[in-house]
Amino acid sequence: MSIHLELRSYRGGDRHRHDYSQILLPMRGAMRLDVEGHHSVVSSNCVAIIPRDHEHDFEPSRDCSMLILDVEASAFAGEAAPALLRDALPSLTRVEPWLWRMFRQLGAEVEAGACQASDAARLALAGLQLVEPSALPRPLSRAESRVLGLTRDASAGSVAEMARTAGLGQSRFHALFRVTTGQSPKQMQLGRLFDEAADKLATTALPVSEIAYELGYQNASSFNRQFKRRFGLTPSEFRAASRSGGPG
C-alpha cells in the first residue's frame, strides 16, 4: 500500500495510530477528531490531515461518511507531496467550494463503483495539490498582523470591537480579514461557536436549549437549524452519535 483510497462509514472510535499519513475528506455528517490533544470538528468543505505515528481518536455523527486516503511516504517516488502533507503536525484546512465539489463528485463515483479506487486516489492527490496551506505566502503588513492576531483571540469580542482593537474601519477590517484568513469575521465566529457547541454536546449533559442560550441564541429552533446546516444533523442527533460508542 503506497496509496489506498476508500469510502468509509463510521459509528464510533478507538484510540490508535498508523505508520502512514491519513487524509480525511467528509462526504456526509461530521466527526469530532482528537489527534494527540489537537481537537477539531471535521465537516463539509474541509480536509483533515493525521500525520503518521500520531495517536488519534474520533467521535462521528450517525451519518458520518469519509473519503479516506492512507498515504505512505513512498507514494510520491521523488515527486513533490501536496503542501498539506509536508508538515509533521495535524491540520484542518478549508477547501474552496469549486474544489470541494470535485472531491464530492469523486466520492460519489467511488461509492457508485464508477471509478477505480486507484485512479480516484491519484485524482484526489492531484486535487490536494491545489489546496493552499494556511500559511500566507508573503510577509504580512502591520495591519494584517493585527488582524491575524485577533483571529487567535477567542475573547476578541464582536466584529466592531475587533475592528476598533485593530485600529481599522469596519470595511477595511473585513477586507483584510478575508485576505489573511480566507473567510469573513462572521464565518470565523460561527465556526468557533459551533465547534464549542459540538464540544458541549459531546462532553456534557446540558439540554440543547441551554447550550443554545449560552452561545447567544434567543431560541433553540434557530440554533438547531444552523447547526444542522453546518454539520448535516441536528444537535440531538450529533449528541446521540457521539455517545453511541462501538468500534470504528
Score class of each variant (00 low, 15 high):
224 N>P: 00
235 P>W: 07
214 E>R: 02
164 R>W: 02
36 E>H: 00
125 L>I: 15
91 S>Q: 14
120 A>T: 07
224 N>K: 04
194 F>S: 08
204 T>V: 10
161 E>G: 14
234 T>S: 15
91 S>L: 14
244 S>W: 04
172 R>L: 14
111 E>P: 04
194 F>M: 07
120 A>Y: 07
48 A>P: 11
82 P>S: 12
77 A>W: 05
223 F>R: 00
160 A>I: 15
74 S>T: 12
212 A>Y: 04
133 P>S: 04
107 G>R: 00
80 A>N: 02
37 G>W: 05
232 G>I: 07
38 H>E: 03
193 L>N: 07
91 S>M: 12
199 D>F: 15
218 Q>F: 06
226 Q>V: 06
41 V>G: 10
96 E>H: 14
195 D>C: 09
148 L>I: 04
1 M>E: 00
165 T>N: 01
178 R>K: 13
93 T>Q: 15
36 E>Q: 07
191 G>Y: 01
112 A>G: 10
95 V>F: 14
184 S>V: 08
137 P>E: 01
42 V>G: 11
184 S>L: 07
124 A>P: 09
156 A>I: 13
220 A>H: 03
146 R>K: 00
27 M>D: 03
129 Q>W: 06
212 A>G: 06
83 A>E: 07
164 R>T: 15
139 P>T: 14
10 Y>Q: 02
219 N>E: 06
53 D>C: 12
66 M>F: 14
235 P>T: 11
192 R>G: 15
141 S>M: 04
27 M>P: 02
168 L>R: 04
158 S>M: 02
247 P>F: 10
42 V>F: 06
71 V>L: 11
127 G>K: 00
1 M>K: 00
136 L>W: 11
38 H>P: 02
247 P>K: 03
78 G>A: 10
44 S>P: 00
192 R>K: 05
108 A>P: 02
150 L>K: 00
113 G>R: 02
220 A>S: 05
35 V>L: 07
194 F>N: 03
127 G>Y: 04
47 V>T: 13
109 E>S: 04
69 L>M: 11
70 D>E: 09
239 R>P: 05
72 E>H: 14
14 D>C: 12
120 A>P: 09
36 E>R: 01
179 V>C: 13
129 Q>R: 13
219 N>C: 03
171 S>L: 07
56 H>Q: 11
214 E>G: 10
18 H>A: 05
119 D>V: 15
154 A>G: 11
28 R>I: 01
134 S>Q: 13
130 L>R: 09
119 D>E: 14
244 S>E: 01
44 S>R: 09
238 F>C: 12
243 R>F: 09
99 L>G: 10
237 E>F: 08
158 S>K: 03
49 I>A: 12
239 R>C: 07
86 R>T: 08
136 L>D: 09
126 A>L: 06
150 L>R: 00
200 K>W: 12
246 G>K: 05
68 I>P: 08
48 A>Q: 01
78 G>H: 06
108 A>D: 15
146 R>H: 00
61 S>I: 13
149 G>E: 02
116 Q>C: 10
5 L>F: 09
157 G>I: 06
229 R>Y: 04
84 L>Q: 13
113 G>V: 03
134 S>D: 08
170 Q>W: 01
14 D>H: 15
111 E>D: 13
215 L>Y: 08
196 E>H: 15
137 P>N: 03
212 A>C: 08
